[in-house]
């Protein structure tokens, strides 16, 4: 059963070792993605969602480190692998696209050559068939005149085209898992819609699993099968998309949902979550959200709630009294 899962993360913890102490950016997170599934992580900046992506990809830089738990890609344990072993998996079995495509493309190499690199390296293809494969992939992601774009440099492309190139590059070795970290945040809304639709159709066609990280609930709602809500390094709620948007139980999830502006009505004020994100070095003794939570009780400030299953597949980290009524 477990072997059907593309990605299985169990009790993952990772953080930064700084002069002021250990910053627990990801704390005991478990998450799984089935074949062809699109799974979303939603949360605000600093909640640890990007740290999960980096932990999976083995891209944590000093002073960041994985401190516990396991990450299995198609049954294969990734934690404890050497850089060399990870290198062989990155780009082949899993690939990542970032918010700002310009920073992850080499500015002095034509994009076609950059894409070909992975095929030469991982698939041991010869140059001619690799080029043919690249052209096919460029066309697949909706880039017109792929032959002309093959020799183009990154700066000659617009933001939307660059993100398409990044996706094509990530897809070139047909990875089992695509991690998309805020893939459309830097893009305009009309281009964002194009890119999201592209990622979804690629996943449907190839059975590729997607881990989508976003702060935008609209993007999450349009894309994901299962959604994990993160706050201060912990999963606070997880459910399938329909359940989460209709029957969320955690007050933080509710706060996020309420902050989404409805285009049809025109309220005088927006419901806002008061206060600020807690400092991870000095987390409150009880629930991390309790200082901002409108429903917090004494118990919330003293005791840390565990993730509890409310319904099959619907988990929530909140004491029963605090939950939204379902």
């Amino acid at each position: 059963m477990d072997n059907d899962l593309t990605l299985k993360i169990e009790h993952l913890s990772s953080g930064f070792f700084t002069e002021r102490g250990y910053v627990p950016a990801v704390d005991d997170v478990s998450l799984s993605i089935g074949k062809g599934q699109v799974v979303g992580i939603v949360g605000e900046s600093g909640c640890g969602k990007s740290m999960i992506a980096r932990s999976v990809m083995g891209l944590l830089k000093y002073p960041g480190r994985i401190t516990g738990g396991s990450i299995k890609l198609a049954g294969q344990e990734l934690t404890g692998m050497s850089d060399g072993q990870l290198q062989r998996i990155r780009g082949k079995d899993m690939a990542m696209i970032f918010q700002e495509p310009m920073t992850s493309l080499n500015p002095v190499v034509p994009i076609g050559k950059q894409m070909r690199e992975a095929l030469l390296l991982h698939e041991k293809m010869d140059k001619i068939s690799a080029k043919a494969e690249v052209l096919k992939m460029l066309e697949h992601v909706g880039i017109s005149e792929p032959k002309k774009r093959y020799g183009a440099y990154p700066h000659e492309l617009s933001g939307g085209l660059r993100q398409r190139v990044m996706i094509a590059m990530a897809m070139i070795c047909k990875p089992k898992l695509l991690i998309a970290d805020e893939p459309t945040t830097a893009l305009d809304v009309t281009i964002e819609a194009q890119i999201l639709r592209l990622i979804r159709s690629l996943s449907r066609e190839t059975g590729m699993s997607v881990l989508l990280i976003s702060h935008n609930l609209g993007v999450i709602a349009q894309m994901c099968d299962t959604v994990y809500v993160m706050y201060a390094g912990k999963i606070v709620e997880q459910a399938d998309a329909y359940t989460l948007f209709d029957r969320h139980a955690h007050p933080y999830t509710k706060g996020l949902m309420d902050s989404v502006i409805d285009l049809k009505s025109n309220p005088r004020r927006l419901p806002a979550i008061g206060g600020v994100v807690p400092n991870l070095l000095h987390l409150p003794a009880g629930c991390a959200f309790s200082p901002r939570c409108p429903r917090a009780m004494d118990r919330c400030r003293e005791e840390r709630p565990e993730l509890e299953e409310l319904a099959p597949g619907h988990l929530c980290r909140c004491f029963e009294e605090g939950r939204e009524r379902l």
Partner: peptide, 18 residues
């Protein structure tokens, strides 16, 4: 093109600006 925060909106796919 605004992504609606409602999974049901997926079913009514609107034409996109190309």
């Amino acid at each position: 093109a605004i992504p609606m925060a409602d999974p049901r909106a997926r079913e009514t796919e609107k034409p996109l600006l190309q």
